[in-house]
Amino acid sequence: MSVDRSDITKVARLARLKIDEADVPQYVDNLSNILGLVEQMSAVNTDDVVPMAHPLDAAQRLRADEVSDTNQRDKFQALAPQVESGLYLVPKVIE
């Protein structure tokens, strides 16, 4: 399976990654090679195999419904690029 320029552009957009136009050929090349490697999977018959999402066959543990976290806004927002009145700011969102 190889990918082309438009696949790269589409995937980069979906993943919200800005890719320099000049780097696109390299990504086309790399991703095609990696998918070529991945392609080896198709040689195996997996018709009756149960997918394995996780190494452990365990069930989800449930926590008690208790409020255990207190307000740490100042501490967390000290890390933020832009805040105002306790809100995280982003460029205007138009719906």
Binding site: Y88, V90, P91, K92, V93
Partner: peptide, 15 residues
């Protein structure tokens, strides 16, 4: 929630 009141042309986010 995104709050669209004007913050100098920005949107505020309350999580």
């Amino acid at each position: 929630k995104s709050l669209h009141e004007d913050f100098q042309g920005s949107t505020g986010v309350d999580l």
